[in-house]
Design a protein around this nucleic acid. Structure first.
Length: 110
DNA sequence: TGACTGACGCCGG
DNA sequence: CCCGGCGCCAGTC
């Protein structure tokens, strides 16, 4: 499949975030990069916007920026949950090199 | 149309 | 490590 509609792209993002296993995290950029492979698009900003608007129903706390910063406006919440899952933290930030996760499949449906 | 706005990312100071 | 600037893209005014 090539390009997707915004609505579908939104679903792809949410579905991928749901697949992030506990104790692991993904960056906005990594999500965009992965989806670029399956949908032909790439934009960390778009991922951030989608998470801000529709991320309430998924493990949003497992999504952080490339610096390991947790979701702004929910630092307490996110850090709390991440710590409970065993995500390595350093000064309130996620240690990406250790906690970063990336899907091994090349399909999303499943 | 064109300007403004973000749950981003990389670089330089 | 923090801050500012620029590029990026889709949505909104």
């Amino acid at each position: 499949m090539g390009a997707v509609d915004s609505d579908e792209y939104r679903e792809l993002v949410l579905q991928l975030v749901e697949r992030i296993p506990p104790g692991r995290v993904m960056t906005y950029g990594a999500i965009a990069e992965y989806l670029a492979d399956v949908s032909g698009r790439c934009s960390a900003r778009q991922v951030g916007t989608i998470m801000a608007r529709y991320g309430a129903g998924v493990p949003w706390h497992r999504v952080v920026n490339s610096s390991g910063r947790v979701v702004p406006g929910h630092e307490q919440r996110a850090t709390e949950r991440l710590a409970a899952e065993g995500v390595p933290l350093r000064a309130g930030r996620v240690i990406i090199k250790t906690a970063a996760w990336y899907p091994e499949d090349h399909t999303v449906g499943g």
